[in-house]
Amino acid sequence: MTAPILEIRNLSKAFGPIQALNNVSLIIPRASLTIIAGPDGSGKSTLLKCLLGLVRADAGQIYLKGQLTDKNFEQIRSISAYMSERFSLYPDLTVEENLDFYACIQMVPKDRKDDLKHRLLERTGLESFRFRLAANLSGGLKQKLALATALLSSPEILFLDEPTPGIDPTSRLEFFRLLEELKKEGRTIILTTPYLDEAEKGDEIVFFHRGKIIKQGSLSDLKNQFPLLVFSFEPETNIFEAYTELSKLVGPENLILRGRQLKIFVPEGEELIWRGKLLRLKREEPRLEDIYFYFERRSEMMELGHDQ
């Protein structure tokens, strides 16, 4: 059996009192799109930086194609490209100059550089913007340029750290279409995002919360294995009162307030009686955000229980 391209075992990292990564273990299969989703400050970027050796992990091991990297990150770096949160572009250089510079520092051979550059400009639709300063590009074009610079070294692994904030929906779709193509070419993509709708596009979805993986799996696995039924309920009384009372009844981890509606997670076959009446609930298909919030709350409750 072929070893996964990356395997992380018990990775931990603390910045002073803040535990950025807490015993993280993860397997990244080859030619896959793994999306690490979680709120800001949950440790997603730290994980990517640890994998590239930009941040030194306090504990844990990283295996590249089955081989322990053991603090030598040259191997990982030599087959990967990294796109940071703010695209890593030089605003005072043109699109072409940015590409040239990155090609040079990634040691792309001279005879391949021009051909590769033209192909990437064409592929990302940047051909007509090649002489424009990066500072004057729209968010979507900056993102494409950053991706193009990352692809110059023809990496096997692409680390994309929150590549979509501030990008319009059309550009996002276009971006994920490009990622899909790259995946088909056999590249492994690890992408972090705070947006759960984006996470749905991943082959493997990893939910991060306070430096820990709280749940992972494919979209279908996450939905099918969700242990509870999801119901939506629109109370006629004050929604906040209803939330307070119902959270005592079902537990706060099983209740989400969304607009005028409450989402309730209930085990199969269980009926809910509130204020002396059997509740008429509307069953729903669990959405990714329901699953995330359920596991996030559960993790918080467990932490709280553990602390106490």
């Binding site: 990967s80 703010r86 890593s88 520092i105």
Partner: peptide, 13 residues
């Protein structure tokens, strides 16, 4: 600040 340093660090420089 531009977050280009990380890219320099992971480059071959």
């Amino acid at each position: 600040e531009q977050q280009t340093l990380d890219t320099l660090l992971v480059s071959k420089l």
